[in-house]
Nucleic acid binder design. Structure first.
Length: 485
RNA sequence: GGCGGCAUAGCCAAGUGGUAAGGCAGAGGUCUGCAAAACCUCCAUCCUCCGGUUCAAAUCCGGAUGCCGCCUCCA
């Protein structure tokens, strides 16, 4: 497959270095708060990448870390008045709740920073010995950026450009403003560990270098993360790891685009901030996951509840079609009517298109287009009285159903029983609209009575009343049904 | 100031130099007591603007305009 590599800024053919094995490291969360929609996007994007690589038959080792000691965690802990480790553990637990809801698979290894202090100390020591880092009198250790000539190769910056933006905070003892902390001397009230430089804790960038190398050989096949991490976090990881090992750190750098609100960055200070829970209070997890896949992973994604509602309609359309296909396949009598070749060709085209889309830089948005094509084709078969009862028509529906099932394992969407999903969706939408099902049922009973008496005026009046409640009545062969308007 | 990204129909959105996927909305139709739902069909001669390269450009190059991101913690 072709993958966009930030290192080089081009799509490149992805081939694992060692046969079938793929090593992939993705920067996980800093556990200090509930996950927001941006975390959801990153998690889903890389989840789909892992699922697709496995689908292609690769043996993927996927490592995703937890940052469980960090300034933000400590700050939060101090506000609440509990140990920082307690905050980290709580939000790691909450991370799993959200990710499980979104069908994001667990990584093979999920290392925590605090469990790899020794590795980080060893790495830092090595960097000091080789002249790439230095300790200060107060017990900090900094990486000497100018000792690493390739610094800036990922983000396309050169050292001179960076000088103007760099700054030294009061109290720092950097030899050069560009240098960044590998190890921070302990301050009162902070968690700390023994080290050759006294009590302290690791800097943020260090952990990914230490943990990725521990679990996978360098160079990594793929290193991923959000676009914002490319500088300075990933740049610093490269500097640390390559300076320490002399090996290339990662072959492919994959970065997902940001989630925006009204084309602006989401941030707590702007008040345009949505957690995964905020969204799942109103929408099904599968709707959110589908929504995230309707845009290419590198594009900025503008989030709004209106777009989510649109996505919800899309998911419903697919599941509704699948339910109808399943119902038709329950039939038993089949004719010998053949299907025209162009219909078979069309289906083959969608199947190929789906693969091609994923092969071209994980283009889930294009792939979903082909899925809709298949579903439309199924609709045409079902709509044709001859085809829907023909063996050839049945075979095509079976083929479409199998294709959807196959891709649902990659997308992590459309894998449920259609009727189960549609029932959940109805409950979800009714809840959002504030509809009381008992009240609806009572009115429907009255309407049924009126219809038995052919009192259509009364029947229609009740229908209007229900419509005012956002309830839409449908008269089906099986009787009355309702849905949310 | 430095680095980078994006501009495609009413809205969302894919698009790898060869003649504009898909979704939502909208219109027509089938069905229905009438509806709704569902399904079918239709819906951009054109891709922000101006130049250029090419037999051929939404796609490549140059310029303009607008929006956004990174350079400080950030998915």
């Amino acid at each position: 497959m072709r993958l966009y590599n930030t290192l080089g800024r081009t799509k490149q053919e992805f081939t694992p270095q060692h046969g079938n094995a793929v090593s992939m490291y993705v920067c996980g969360i800093t556990a200090y708060d509930y996950c927001h929609i941006g975390h959801a996007r990153s998690a889903v994007v890389f989840d789909v990448l892992v699922r697709y690589l496995r689908f292609k038959g690769y043996d993927v080792t996927f490592v995703r870390n937890f940052t469980d000691v960090d300034d933000k965690i400590i700050k939060r802990a101090n506000e609440v008045g509990v140990p920082s480790q307690e905050i980290a553990e709580k939000f790691i637990g909450e991370f799993y709740v959200d990710m499980d809801a979104l069908s994001v698979l667990r990584a093979d290894v999920e290392p925590k920073c605090t469990e790899h202090i020794d590795e980080m100390i060893t790495l830092t020591q090595g960097l000091i010995e080789s002249g790439h880092a230095y300790a200060t009198p107060s017990g900090d250790v900094y990486f000497k950026v100018r000792s690493f000539p390739d610094y800036g190769k990922l983000s396309g910056r050169n050292i001179e450009d960076l000088v103007s933006g760099a700054r030294v905070d009061p109290g720092e003892e950097k030899l050069d403003p560009l240098d960044f902390a590998l190890w921070k001397a302990a301050k009162p009230g902070e968690p700390s560990w023994e080290s050759p430089w006294g009590l302290g804790r690791p800097g943020w960038h260090l952990e990914c270098s230490a943990m990725s190398e521990k679990y996978m050989p360098l160079p990594l096949d793929i290193h991923g993360g959000g676009q914002d991490l490319s500088f300075p976090h990933h740049e610093n990881e490269i500097a640390q790891s390559e300076a320490a090992t002399g090996k290339e750190f990662a072959k492919f750098w994959v970065h997902n685009g940001f989630v925006q609100i009204n084309s602006e960055k989401m941030s707590k200070s702007l008040g345009n901030f949505f957690t995964i829970r905020d969204i799942l209070a109103k929408f099904l997890p599968e709707t959110l996951r589908y929504f995230l896949l309707t845009m290419h992973y590198r594009s900025p994604l503008d989030f709004s509840f209106d777009s989510l509602e649109e996505a919800e309609k899309g998911v419903r359309r697919i599941y509704t079609a699948l339910a109808q296909v399943d119902a038709a396949l329950a039939g038993t009598k089949w004719s010998k009517t053949p299907l025209p070749q162009d219909i078979l060709d069309e289906q083959a085209g969608y199947e190929q298109g789906f693969v091609d889309a994923f092969e071209d830089d994980l283009n889930s948005a294009a792939a979903l287009g082909h899925l809709f094509g298949m579903v439309r084709l199924a609709g045409r078969i079902l709509d044709d009285k001859g085809y829907r009862k023909a063996e050839a028509g049945r075979d095509l529906l079976v083929r479409i159903r199998a294709e959807v099932a196959k891709w649902s394992t990659v997308l992590g969407v459309f894998g449920l029983e259609p009727e189960t999903f549609l029932a959940s969706l109805k409950t979800c939408r009714a809840g959002r609209a504030g509809i009381e099902p008992a009240k609806v049922d009572a009115l429907l009973a009255d309407r049924l009575e009126a219809r038995k008496n052919k009192d259509f005026a009364r029947s229609d009046a009740i229908r209007d009343e229900l419509a005012a409640m956002q309830v839409e009545v449908k008269d089906t062969p099986q009787g009355q049904a309702w849905d949310v308007l």
